[in-house]
């Protein structure tokens, strides 16, 4: 799941307008941002799921540090604390929660590969409801998150522009349209395997 995370961040912006959108987008991807260097150095790995039928959601991801439950909590706390220094307590809490929302959404789609403890210490049962086994369902969920998030953002951006006199109405429309285009483009790229 990639586009769904962006959709959620856009929806949160509508409810927490004082938090910068770019920071919300970074927060929602934070676990994956940290994952990339660990993947490139071989610390965390990806293998193809034997039951996968296409490129979308076809992976079993061994992200035992960044995507373990406790790892996600630690990374989210770090993001929230750093954000708090720039934008205050409320934004810090919001951005920390958005960072952790990544793990919650991943829990829905991953094929039971999310450990509980960092490094999968103790080899406790791994988590994941496995919606990726049903690509039409998980892709629809992502689509709804993108459409819902872009719509909520557009409503809030329009209202903000109107309250300020309406001069920024076109910018509000453009911003919402870009979220929609990037979100749908990301989903299309993910479905085609371009982002794998």
């Amino acid at each position: 799941m990639i586009a769904g995370h962006f959709g959620l961040a856009a929806g949160v912006k509508a409810k927490e307008p004082a938090v910068p959108l770019w920071a919300l987008m970074l927060a929602t991807s934070w676990l994956d941002v940290v994952f990339v260097p660990l993947f490139l150095t071989g610390v965390e790995t990806i293998e193809k799921a034997p039951d996968a039928t296409g490129p979308y959601g076809a992976d079993i991801i061994h992200a035992n540090y960044t995507h373990s439950l406790f790892g996600a909590i630690v990374l989210s706390l770090v993001f929230g604390f750093v954000a708090r220094r720039f934008w205050g307590d409320r934004a810090g809490v919001v951005l920390g929660l958005v960072a952790f929302s990544h793990w919650v959404l991943d829990l829905l789609v991953h094929r039971g590969d999310l450990p509980i403890l960092i490094g999968n210490v103790g080899h406790l049962p791994t988590l994941g409801f496995g919606l990726w086994r049903y690509p039409a369902v998980s892709a629809t969920l992502e689509l709804l998150l993108v459409l819902g998030g872009a719509w909520l953002y557009w409503r809030a951006a329009r209202a903000t522009a109107e309250a300020a006199g309406g001069a920024q109405r076109a910018r509000a429309d453009l911003s919402a349209a870009l979220i929609l285009i990037f979100g749908l483009g990301t989903l299309a790229a993910d479905l085609s395997g371009f982002l794998s």
């Binding site: 004082a18 994956d32 990339v36 951006a157 920024q168 990037f182």
Partner: peptide
Amino acid sequence: MAYLIELFLFIVVVGIVDAGLPWPRPEKRQ
């Protein structure tokens, strides 16, 4: 890597356009 490029573009392009809107400012740190 394509994912990171996608994320970077998303943050920069959408972030710049969004930042020009008259959103309320975050609370100030004391």
